[in-house]
Protein backbone atom coordinates (compact mmCIF):
# COMPACT_ATOMS: atom_id res chain seq x y z
CA UNK A 1 0.00 0.00 0.00
CA UNK A 2 1.15 3.48 -0.81
CA UNK A 3 -0.12 5.18 2.33
CA UNK A 4 2.20 7.21 4.42
CA UNK A 5 1.93 10.02 6.89
CA UNK A 6 3.48 13.31 5.96
CA UNK A 7 3.44 16.87 7.12
CA UNK A 8 5.07 18.14 3.94
CA UNK A 9 3.11 20.27 1.51
CA UNK A 10 4.14 21.85 -1.79
CA UNK A 11 4.20 25.26 -0.18
CA UNK A 12 6.39 23.97 2.60
CA UNK A 13 8.91 22.49 0.18
CA UNK A 14 9.12 25.79 -1.66
CA UNK A 15 9.31 27.58 1.67
CA UNK A 16 12.21 25.35 2.65
CA UNK A 17 14.17 26.32 -0.44
CA UNK A 18 13.35 30.00 0.04
CA UNK A 19 14.38 29.76 3.70
CA UNK A 20 17.81 28.39 2.81
CA UNK A 21 18.24 31.12 0.23
CA UNK A 22 17.14 33.79 2.73
CA UNK A 23 19.60 32.56 5.33
CA UNK A 24 22.39 32.67 2.77
CA UNK A 25 21.46 36.21 1.77
CA UNK A 26 21.16 37.14 5.42
CA UNK A 27 24.66 35.93 6.09
CA UNK A 28 26.36 37.92 3.38
CA UNK A 29 24.09 40.94 3.71
CA UNK A 30 26.50 42.99 5.87
CA UNK A 31 28.82 43.21 2.86
CA UNK A 32 26.35 45.55 1.13
CA UNK A 33 23.85 46.77 3.68
CA UNK A 34 23.94 50.08 5.49
CA UNK A 35 24.48 50.16 9.22
CA UNK A 36 20.94 51.31 9.89
CA UNK A 37 19.51 48.41 7.88
CA UNK A 38 21.64 46.02 9.90
CA UNK A 39 20.32 47.60 13.10
CA UNK A 40 16.75 47.32 11.88
CA UNK A 41 17.28 43.69 10.99
CA UNK A 42 18.79 43.07 14.41
CA UNK A 43 15.65 44.50 15.97
CA UNK A 44 13.39 42.45 13.71
CA UNK A 45 15.27 39.21 14.31
CA UNK A 46 15.41 39.54 18.09
CA UNK A 47 11.73 40.51 18.33
CA UNK A 48 10.85 37.66 16.00
CA UNK A 49 12.70 35.20 18.22
CA UNK A 50 11.02 36.48 21.36
CA UNK A 51 7.63 36.28 19.66
CA UNK A 52 8.26 32.74 18.45
CA UNK A 53 9.20 31.71 21.98
CA UNK A 54 6.13 33.31 23.51
CA UNK A 55 4.04 31.73 20.77
CA UNK A 56 5.53 28.37 21.67
CA UNK A 57 4.51 28.48 25.32
CA UNK A 58 1.24 30.41 24.95
CA UNK A 59 0.02 29.62 21.45
CA UNK A 60 1.06 26.01 21.32
CA UNK A 61 1.31 25.21 25.01
CA UNK A 62 -1.60 27.26 26.37
CA UNK A 63 0.61 28.84 29.07
CA UNK A 64 -0.12 32.53 28.69
CA UNK A 65 2.91 34.18 30.22
CA UNK A 66 2.97 37.92 30.85
CA UNK A 67 6.36 37.57 32.55
CA UNK A 68 8.74 37.02 29.65
CA UNK A 69 10.51 40.25 30.56
CA UNK A 70 11.90 38.37 33.55
CA UNK A 71 13.98 36.18 31.25
CA UNK A 72 15.10 39.00 28.99
CA UNK A 73 16.10 41.01 32.05
CA UNK A 74 17.85 38.27 33.97
CA UNK A 75 19.63 37.15 30.81
CA UNK A 76 20.87 40.64 30.15
CA UNK A 77 21.98 41.16 33.75
CA UNK A 78 23.78 37.83 33.84
CA UNK A 79 25.71 38.84 30.74
CA UNK A 80 26.57 42.17 32.38
CA UNK A 81 27.67 40.35 35.52
CA UNK A 82 29.95 38.09 33.46
CA UNK A 83 31.55 41.04 31.77
CA UNK A 84 31.79 43.48 34.66
CA UNK A 85 32.36 41.17 37.62
CA UNK A 86 34.30 38.36 36.04
CA UNK A 87 35.86 40.01 33.03
CA UNK A 88 34.27 37.76 30.45
CA UNK A 89 34.11 38.70 26.82
CA UNK A 90 30.51 39.88 26.15
CA UNK A 91 29.82 37.31 23.42
CA UNK A 92 30.51 34.16 25.44
CA UNK A 93 28.84 35.92 28.37
CA UNK A 94 25.60 35.67 26.41
CA UNK A 95 25.59 32.01 27.39
CA UNK A 96 25.43 33.09 31.02
CA UNK A 97 22.17 34.80 30.11
CA UNK A 98 20.73 31.50 28.97
CA UNK A 99 21.87 29.77 32.14
CA UNK A 100 20.48 32.48 34.39
CA UNK A 101 17.12 32.45 32.62
CA UNK A 102 16.98 28.68 32.92
CA UNK A 103 17.67 28.89 36.64
CA UNK A 104 15.02 31.58 37.10
CA UNK A 105 12.50 29.60 35.09
CA UNK A 106 12.60 26.72 37.57
CA UNK A 107 11.13 28.61 40.53
CA UNK A 108 8.92 30.62 38.18
CA UNK A 109 7.37 27.47 36.76
CA UNK A 110 7.14 25.96 40.22
CA UNK A 111 5.05 28.87 41.48
CA UNK A 112 3.12 29.79 38.36
CA UNK A 113 2.05 26.23 37.55
CA UNK A 114 0.26 26.21 40.89
CA UNK A 115 -2.07 28.87 39.55
CA UNK A 116 -4.94 27.61 37.49
CA UNK A 117 -5.66 28.81 34.00
CA UNK A 118 -5.85 32.52 33.62
CA UNK A 119 -4.17 33.33 36.93
CA UNK A 120 -1.01 31.78 35.56
CA UNK A 121 -0.59 34.97 33.53
CA UNK A 122 -0.53 37.28 36.54
CA UNK A 123 1.62 34.81 38.45
CA UNK A 124 4.38 35.09 35.88
CA UNK A 125 4.04 38.85 35.99
CA UNK A 126 4.49 38.87 39.77
CA UNK A 127 7.68 36.83 39.52
CA UNK A 128 9.03 39.13 36.85
CA UNK A 129 8.37 42.06 39.20
CA UNK A 130 10.08 40.30 42.07
CA UNK A 131 13.09 39.65 39.87
CA UNK A 132 13.22 43.26 38.77
CA UNK A 133 13.02 44.51 42.36
CA UNK A 134 15.74 42.12 43.51
CA UNK A 135 18.04 43.01 40.63
CA UNK A 136 17.50 46.69 41.39
CA UNK A 137 19.12 45.98 44.76
CA UNK A 138 22.29 44.73 43.02
CA UNK A 139 24.45 47.77 43.68
CA UNK A 140 27.59 46.60 41.85
CA UNK A 141 25.54 46.51 38.66
CA UNK A 142 24.21 49.98 39.20
CA UNK A 143 21.18 49.25 41.40
CA UNK A 144 18.02 50.98 40.30
CA UNK A 145 19.73 53.31 37.84
CA UNK A 146 21.69 50.69 35.92
CA UNK A 147 25.08 50.75 34.28
CA UNK A 148 26.99 50.46 30.98
CA UNK A 149 29.35 47.87 29.60
CA UNK A 150 32.90 49.14 30.21
CA UNK A 151 34.63 50.59 27.16
CA UNK A 152 37.46 48.04 27.37
CA UNK A 153 34.99 45.20 27.22
CA UNK A 154 33.12 46.49 24.16
CA UNK A 155 36.36 47.56 22.46
CA UNK A 156 37.82 44.11 21.96
CA UNK A 157 34.93 41.69 21.57
CA UNK A 158 36.22 38.63 19.78
CA UNK A 159 35.64 38.73 16.06
CA UNK A 160 34.86 42.42 15.87
CA UNK A 161 38.31 43.35 14.60
CA UNK A 162 38.15 40.68 11.91
CA UNK A 163 34.75 41.88 10.80
CA UNK A 164 35.94 45.46 10.79
CA UNK A 165 38.86 44.55 8.54
CA UNK A 166 36.79 42.27 6.33
CA UNK A 167 34.09 44.83 5.54
CA UNK A 168 36.18 47.94 6.08
CA UNK A 169 33.98 49.12 8.94
CA UNK A 170 34.52 51.06 12.12
CA UNK A 171 34.43 49.10 15.37
CA UNK A 172 30.95 50.24 16.37
CA UNK A 173 29.49 49.19 13.03
CA UNK A 174 31.39 45.92 13.14
CA UNK A 175 29.86 45.22 16.56
CA UNK A 176 26.43 45.70 15.03
CA UNK A 177 27.30 43.20 12.31
CA UNK A 178 28.42 40.64 14.86
CA UNK A 179 25.27 41.15 16.90
CA UNK A 180 23.22 40.86 13.74
CA UNK A 181 24.83 37.56 12.83
CA UNK A 182 24.24 36.21 16.29
CA UNK A 183 20.62 37.34 16.13
CA UNK A 184 20.24 35.63 12.78
CA UNK A 185 21.72 32.44 14.19
CA UNK A 186 19.42 32.57 17.22
CA UNK A 187 16.36 33.26 15.12
CA UNK A 188 17.08 30.40 12.73
CA UNK A 189 17.96 28.03 15.54
CA UNK A 190 14.80 28.94 17.46
CA UNK A 191 12.56 28.53 14.45
CA UNK A 192 14.17 25.23 13.50
CA UNK A 193 14.00 23.91 17.06
CA UNK A 194 10.36 24.85 17.52
CA UNK A 195 9.46 23.39 14.15
CA UNK A 196 11.24 20.15 14.96
CA UNK A 197 9.63 20.07 18.40
CA UNK A 198 6.13 20.56 17.04
CA UNK A 199 6.62 17.74 14.55
CA UNK A 200 7.94 15.39 17.20
CA UNK A 201 5.97 13.31 19.67
CA UNK A 202 6.43 16.08 22.20
CA UNK A 203 4.68 18.43 19.81
CA UNK A 204 1.69 16.14 19.65
CA UNK A 205 1.75 15.89 23.42
CA UNK A 206 1.86 19.68 23.70
CA UNK A 207 -1.19 20.02 21.49
CA UNK A 208 -2.98 17.47 23.66
CA UNK A 209 -1.97 19.33 26.83
CA UNK A 210 -3.09 22.65 25.45
CA UNK A 211 -6.48 21.34 24.47
CA UNK A 212 -7.13 19.39 27.61
CA UNK A 213 -4.87 18.36 30.47
CA UNK A 214 -7.05 15.46 31.50
CA UNK A 215 -7.54 14.06 28.04
CA UNK A 216 -3.79 14.26 27.51
CA UNK A 217 -3.15 12.34 30.70
CA UNK A 218 -5.62 9.65 29.71
CA UNK A 219 -3.74 8.97 26.48
CA UNK A 220 -0.50 8.63 28.40
CA UNK A 221 1.00 12.07 27.99
CA UNK A 222 2.69 13.40 31.08
CA UNK A 223 1.22 16.88 30.84
CA UNK A 224 3.30 18.34 33.65
CA UNK A 225 6.55 17.10 32.18
CA UNK A 226 5.81 18.46 28.72
CA UNK A 227 4.83 21.82 30.15
CA UNK A 228 8.00 22.04 32.23
CA UNK A 229 10.17 21.07 29.31
CA UNK A 230 8.71 23.63 26.94
CA UNK A 231 8.59 26.39 29.55
CA UNK A 232 12.23 25.92 30.57
CA UNK A 233 13.44 25.67 26.97
CA UNK A 234 11.61 28.84 25.97
CA UNK A 235 12.89 30.67 29.04
CA UNK A 236 16.49 29.69 28.29
CA UNK A 237 16.28 30.88 24.71
CA UNK A 238 14.57 34.10 25.83
CA UNK A 239 17.47 34.68 28.23
CA UNK A 240 19.96 34.29 25.40
CA UNK A 241 18.06 36.80 23.29
CA UNK A 242 17.91 39.22 26.21
CA UNK A 243 21.65 38.98 26.73
CA UNK A 244 22.31 39.50 23.04
CA UNK A 245 20.06 42.55 22.87
CA UNK A 246 22.01 44.13 25.71
CA UNK A 247 25.38 43.28 24.17
CA UNK A 248 24.26 45.49 21.33
CA UNK A 249 22.71 48.15 23.56
CA UNK A 250 25.67 48.10 25.98
CA UNK A 251 23.63 50.00 28.58
CA UNK A 252 21.24 48.47 31.07
CA UNK A 253 18.78 49.44 33.80
CA UNK A 254 16.21 47.34 35.64
CA UNK A 255 13.28 49.32 34.27
CA UNK A 256 14.41 48.83 30.67
CA UNK A 257 15.62 45.25 30.93
CA UNK A 258 12.49 44.13 32.77
CA UNK A 259 10.09 46.29 30.76
CA UNK A 260 6.74 44.60 30.35
CA UNK A 261 5.96 46.82 27.38
CA UNK A 262 9.12 46.11 25.40
CA UNK A 263 9.58 42.45 26.06
CA UNK A 264 6.10 41.14 26.62
CA UNK A 265 3.46 43.56 25.28
CA UNK A 266 5.20 44.08 21.94
CA UNK A 267 5.93 40.40 21.71
CA UNK A 268 2.33 39.45 22.39
CA UNK A 269 1.07 42.00 19.88
CA UNK A 270 3.42 40.60 17.24
CA UNK A 271 2.12 37.09 17.81
CA UNK A 272 -1.54 38.16 18.04
CA UNK A 273 -1.50 40.32 14.94
CA UNK A 274 0.43 37.77 12.93
CA UNK A 275 -1.46 34.76 14.22
CA UNK A 276 -1.17 32.79 17.44
CA UNK A 277 -0.44 29.10 17.33
CA UNK A 278 1.29 29.15 13.95
CA UNK A 279 4.96 29.52 13.16
CA UNK A 280 4.16 31.81 10.25
CA UNK A 281 2.25 34.21 12.53
CA UNK A 282 5.13 35.92 14.32
CA UNK A 283 7.10 36.23 11.07
CA UNK A 284 4.28 38.17 9.47
CA UNK A 285 3.55 39.93 12.75
CA UNK A 286 7.06 41.20 13.25
CA UNK A 287 7.14 42.69 9.77
CA UNK A 288 3.82 44.46 10.36
CA UNK A 289 5.04 45.57 13.77
CA UNK A 290 8.32 46.90 12.38
CA UNK A 291 6.43 48.77 9.68
CA UNK A 292 4.13 50.37 12.25
CA UNK A 293 7.04 51.11 14.55
CA UNK A 294 9.02 52.82 11.78
CA UNK A 295 6.04 54.83 10.62
CA UNK A 296 4.40 55.77 13.90
CA UNK A 297 6.82 55.35 16.79
CA UNK A 298 7.24 59.12 16.90
CA UNK A 299 3.66 59.41 18.03
CA UNK A 300 4.69 57.83 21.33
CA UNK A 301 1.73 56.85 23.43
CA UNK A 302 -0.80 57.37 20.62
CA UNK A 303 1.10 54.66 18.81
CA UNK A 304 0.93 52.29 21.78
CA UNK A 305 -2.74 53.10 22.26
CA UNK A 306 -3.39 52.17 18.64
CA UNK A 307 -1.33 49.00 18.96
CA UNK A 308 -3.38 47.90 21.99
CA UNK A 309 -6.63 48.59 20.14
CA UNK A 310 -5.33 46.76 17.08
CA UNK A 311 -4.61 43.71 19.20
CA UNK A 312 -8.13 43.83 20.65
CA UNK A 313 -9.66 44.21 17.20
CA UNK A 314 -7.61 41.29 15.92
CA UNK A 315 -8.78 39.04 18.74
CA UNK A 316 -12.40 40.07 18.10
CA UNK A 317 -12.55 39.88 14.35
CA UNK A 318 -9.65 37.68 13.24
CA UNK A 319 -8.62 35.66 16.29
CA UNK A 320 -6.11 33.66 14.29
CA UNK A 321 -4.39 36.78 13.05
CA UNK A 322 -3.28 37.88 9.62
CA UNK A 323 -1.75 34.56 8.82
CA UNK A 324 -4.99 32.86 9.80
CA UNK A 325 -6.81 35.02 7.25
CA UNK A 326 -4.27 34.17 4.56
CA UNK A 327 -4.36 30.50 5.43
CA UNK A 328 -8.16 30.41 5.30
CA UNK A 329 -8.20 32.02 1.85
CA UNK A 330 -5.35 30.09 0.28
CA UNK A 331 -4.69 27.05 2.43
CA UNK A 332 -0.98 27.84 2.33
CA UNK A 333 1.11 26.51 5.23
CA UNK A 334 4.82 27.23 5.18
CA UNK A 335 5.49 25.21 8.30
CA UNK A 336 2.87 22.49 8.27
CA UNK A 337 2.55 20.59 11.51
CA UNK A 338 -0.74 18.90 10.81
CA UNK A 339 -0.21 15.30 9.87
CA UNK A 340 -1.93 14.31 6.67
CA UNK A 341 -2.54 10.85 5.39
CA UNK A 342 -1.19 10.55 1.89
CA UNK A 343 -2.96 7.90 -0.16
CA UNK A 344 -1.42 5.82 -2.96
CA UNK A 345 -2.84 8.19 -5.58
CA UNK A 346 -1.00 11.35 -4.64
CA UNK A 347 1.82 9.63 -2.81
Amino acid sequence: MGHRITTRTRASSIAGIIAVALIAVGLILPAFASRSLIQDLFFILTMLTLAQLWNLIAGFGGMVSVGQQAFVGIGAYAMFAGVILWGWDPVPAILLGGVAAFLLAIPMAFFAFRLAGAYFAIGTWVIAEVTRLVVAQWKTLGGGTGTSLPREATADIIGVETIARLFGLRDAAARDVLAYWLALALAVATLATIYALLRSRTGLALAAVRDNDNAARSVGVDAARVKWLVFLAAATMTGLVGALIYVQTARISPDAAFSVTNWTAYVIFIAVIGGIGRLEGPILGVLVFWGLQTAFADYGSWYLLALGLLAIATMLFAPRGLWGLIHDRTGIALFPVQRRLIGAKDG
Partner: peptide
Protein backbone atom coordinates in the same frame (compact mmCIF):
# COMPACT_ATOMS: atom_id res chain seq x y z
CA UNK B 1 -17.42 37.90 22.39
CA UNK B 2 -14.17 36.31 23.49
CA UNK B 3 -15.30 34.36 26.54
CA UNK B 4 -15.13 30.63 25.99
CA UNK B 5 -13.24 27.50 26.76
CA UNK B 6 -9.98 28.96 25.49
CA UNK B 7 -8.50 31.31 28.11
CA UNK B 8 -6.16 33.00 25.66
CA UNK B 9 -8.53 35.43 23.86
CA UNK B 10 -9.92 37.17 26.95
CA UNK B 11 -6.46 37.45 28.47
CA UNK B 12 -5.03 39.01 25.34
CA UNK B 13 -7.95 41.35 24.88
CA UNK B 14 -7.68 42.65 28.43
CA UNK B 15 -3.92 42.91 28.07
CA UNK B 16 -4.43 44.99 24.93
CA UNK B 17 -6.93 47.08 26.86
CA UNK B 18 -4.39 47.59 29.62
CA UNK B 19 -1.79 48.96 27.22
CA UNK B 20 -4.36 51.04 25.36
CA UNK B 21 -5.79 52.53 28.57
CA UNK B 22 -2.39 53.39 30.02
CA UNK B 23 -1.31 55.19 26.91
CA UNK B 24 -4.65 56.83 26.32
CA UNK B 25 -4.51 58.28 29.84
CA UNK B 26 -0.93 59.35 29.25
CA UNK B 27 -2.02 61.39 26.23
Amino acid sequence: RVLGKDILPPLLVTFGLSVALQNGMLE
